[in-house]
């Protein structure tokens, strides 16, 4: 089984580390890439600047509240970019606000998940995301999509 590439856009290192720990306990061999803000995330996806060798991620885990360019803008840019819009974007955030949920789906988020406070639940959720988006669903091959 090949290594799955996961791009996590998250400005809080503790949060990022927690996701990383959860993924470590997961089933798939994965490589987690971290973008600390929206600008970095877009550079990574478009393989610009220091990210010229970046792999095309299989799934993006996107926080909404980010410095420089926030998650909603990143989401909008991904979903209007013909090269990128097929990449599943999972909004993974602490916000339970109705307007954030509505806005995210309006911008074509693939799904919206609220981070639970309970670690056990969080680990389960990360595994479910992994299983669902990387094992269950059929996605177009990156090359074919491009």
């Amino acid at each position: 089984m090949s290594v799955v590439e996961i791009l996590m856009v998250e400005d809080n290192p503790a949060d990022a580390r927690l996701t990383e720990e959860a993924l470590k306990e997961g089933l798939l061999r994965n490589r987690l890439h971290l973008a600390r803000d929206g600008v970095e995330a877009m550079q990574f996806l478009r393989r610009e600047g220091p990210f010229s060798d970046a792999p095309r991620p299989d799934v993006v885990l996107l926080d909404l509240n980010l410095p420089r360019k926030d998650g909603r803008e990143v989401l909008a840019e991904i979903k209007t970019d013909p090269d990128l819009k097929h990449i599943p974007v999972v909004v993974l955030t602490t916000s339970e606000a109705e307007q954030d949920i509505v806005k995210s789906y309006a911008l074509h988020a693939n799904c919206y998940v609220t981070k639970p406070v309970d670690l056990q639940r969080f680990i389960e959720i990360v595994h479910q995301i992994e299983t669902f988006w990387l094992q269950i669903v059929k996605l177009p091959q990156s090359d074919a999509a491009a």
């Binding site: 809080n12 949060d15 602490t94 981070k115 406070v117 309970d118 670690l119």
Partner: peptide, 12 residues
Amino acid sequence: EPLRMVASYCQL
């Protein structure tokens, strides 16, 4: 956010 970190890392 910080609270979730406190809780999560305690749990971890």
